[in-house]
Computed example of a mutant assay.
Amino acid sequence: MSEALPVPPADPSDALGDLSDIALLRLRGRVAAELKRRGLASNVGQVAESLAIALYNATPGRPNLQPAPTGTQNVDALSRRGDRYSIKGVLDARKTGTVYPDRDDPEKQLFEYLIVVRIDTDWQLLAVYEFDWKTFCEVRSWDRRMNAWYVGLAAKTLARAKQITPQAG
């Protein structure tokens, strides 16, 4: 009599709880290597940038964006008109990552728009908020430890932004 094959779970993540700690860490390493091989985003910031650019490019009335050159400080995407976009991804935080001011001119405009991309624990797009530079300056807060600006994600602050919603598809 042959032995029955195990039935895989409907959701592969259901099987993760059965892995030992070391097996889970090894799997993480293999997944990271495969993401790199395929040129896919592997952290919250990279995923947020990809989601924001794809959403803007697929949404009528929004500018088409392209990634900014690697290493461009505070700018993650550019529009065809030359507008600069800083993109901050948020998974489970109450504030964005930091925006570092110019060393020589702390009030210098660094970008035209800040895009805040909220994603869930499955890294699915929840919401996208766009702040123009003027509004960013009005809602930003100073992080003394990092010597940089951030935006808190209270409902009152997010209400000041333009919310960009994906087209139903």
Rank of each mutant, 00 (worst) to 15 (best):
D14S: 15
V31R: 06
P63A: 12
R84S: 04
F111P: 02
V128T: 13
S141R: 14
L78G: 10
V47C: 06
T165M: 08
T72A: 09
D11W: 12
R145H: 07
Y129P: 02
D92L: 03
D102T: 11
R145G: 05
T70V: 14
G29A: 11
V44M: 02
A10G: 12
Y85W: 09
A155L: 04
L24H: 08
Y129E: 02
R30L: 13
V139I: 06
A77C: 07
L158E: 01
A77W: 03
V44F: 02
R80N: 09
I164E: 00
G39R: 03
V139D: 07
W133V: 05
V31S: 06
L16M: 14
D14R: 15
V151G: 07
R62H: 06
R84L: 01
R26E: 11
A10N: 07
T59H: 12
S2H: 14
G82Y: 09
V139R: 10
S141F: 02
R80E: 10
F136S: 05
R118A: 05
G17L: 13
G89R: 10
D21E: 04
G61P: 11
M146G: 02
K36Q: 13
F136V: 02
G39E: 03
T70K: 13
G71E: 08
Y150P: 01
G29K: 14
R62E: 14
A58V: 00
P9M: 10
W142K: 07
R118Q: 13
Q124D: 12
L51H: 11
R118V: 00
G71V: 13
V139Y: 07
K88N: 01
N64C: 09
G39F: 08
L153E: 07
Q73V: 13
G61I: 07
P69M: 11
E138V: 00
F136C: 02
V139T: 10
A68P: 09
E112F: 01
N57P: 11
D122Q: 14
K162Q: 11
R30M: 13
Q163P: 00
K156F: 00
R28M: 00
P60G: 03
D105F: 13
L51S: 09
A68V: 09
V116N: 06
P67C: 01
D83C: 08
I164D: 02
G71R: 10
L114M: 15
A159N: 13
G61F: 05
S20W: 02
I87C: 04
A23V: 06
